[in-house]
């Protein structure tokens, strides 16, 4: 659905992208991650037809962004980072304005607006001036505007930045819903834990180069093989360690610090093991047989933060 091949972008003597290549399948939610200055926004602006790459090619929904930018725009919804917004009109007028500008037919305009308002749950804001909306409400309004022409692909640049936790969670649920509707979502964010929750695919960029890309499961298998679980029990670490180490598929058992408010007798360990969830069931059963009082079993989900730290060097972009 989105393809980049060897994208190079130079600004003067400075090369910002060094041959970026990506392939985002239809219907996926793609998390685009990278440190500041890595080239995320530059790549996104090329995909959104707002910049021409110096070299390489890119396609959105099968359409070449360089040759047919107008056609790409009909299939694309783009929500930029820190997007501006008209303040002296109401939310309803704002949507009507963009629907008209995007060429939504007069006859169907009201229905289209009603649909996106319902989807983004901003019906109660329709009569309010945009200047009176909170940051989270504005983000929802921007997302509603992005959806007016029913795009196949959504490109969202840092949509959750500066939002409070509640607004973030609501926005995340909305993205998940859009993903279920079959939209391809290309999402850049700094908040890796949130991306891990909703993304099916991830690409990591650093210093203008894609350092790794693929499905979450692929990345996990390639970069952090095996499964991890955190076990909490009442009793000493040694008792847990002794039982767990009897299994050959357990690779490591490491103690984890407990929270300050937890009682002293609570012990927490991180277990790295090979296999699947049946193995985890075996471990739990063995601990129960050994009369160890388990109080929590927390399988670790794909740790995007750890993967990010593993594949990036943290080097800053250099000036020419």
């Amino acid at each position: 659905m989105i393809r980049c091949e060897g994208l190079v972008q130079r600004f003067g003597g400075r090369t910002v992208l060094h041959g970026v290549s990506l392939d985002v399948p239809r219907g996926s939610v793609f998390g685009f991650i990278g440190p500041n200055g890595a080239g995320k926004t530059t790549t996104i602006r090329i995909l959104a037809t707002l910049s021409l790459p110096t070299e390489g090619r890119a396609e959105v929904a099968g359409v070449d962004v360089i040759a047919h930018p107008a056609e790409v725009r009909r299939k694309l919804g783009y929500m930029p980072d820190n997007a501006g917004i008209y303040e002296r009109i109401t939310a309803q007028e704002y949507l009507e304005f963009f629907a008209s500008a995007a060429g939504v037919a007069v006859a169907s305009r009201a229905k289209v607006i009603a649909n996106v308002v319902e989807l983004t749950e901003i019906g109660h804001l329709a009569g309010r001036e945009v200047m009176a909306l909170s940051k989270g409400q504005r983000q929802r309004l921007l997302l509603a505007r992005t959806l007016l022409h029913d795009p196949e692909v959504l490109i969202l640049d840092e949509p959750a930045s500066d939002l409070d936790p509640r607004a973030r969670i609501e926005l995340r649920l909305l993205f998940a819903e859009l993903g279920r509707m079959g939209k391809t979502i290309f999402l850049s964010s700094h908040i890796l834990t949130e991306l891990a929750d909703i993304c099916s695919h991830v690409g990591i960029i650093e210093q203008g180069r894609i350092v790794t890309a693929g499905t979450m499961a692929d990345l996990q298998a390639r970069l952090r093989p095996g499964l991890r679980v955190k076990l909490s029990a009442l009793g000493p670490f040694e008792a847990l360690d002794r039982v767990l180490k009897t299994f050959s598929f357990v690779k490591a058992v490491t103690p984890v610090a407990t929270e300050a408010h937890e009682p002293r007798e609570v012990t927490r360990v991180a277990v790295h093991y090979e296999g699947d969830h049946h193995r985890l069931a075996e471990l739990v059963a063995a601990l129960c047989r050994a009369e160890i009082a388990l109080i929590a079993v927390e399988p670790e989900r794909t740790n995007l933060e750890q993967i990010f730290m593993d594949v990036t060097t943290g080097a800053q972009p250099t000036e020419p």
Partner: peptide, 16 residues
């Protein structure tokens, strides 16, 4: 003013 307020790009992307 549209440029300063970063709203021009959204207009451009509507295809107008």
């Amino acid at each position: 003013q549209e440029r300063e307020a970063r709203t021009l790009e959204a207009l451009t992307l509507t295809g107008m």
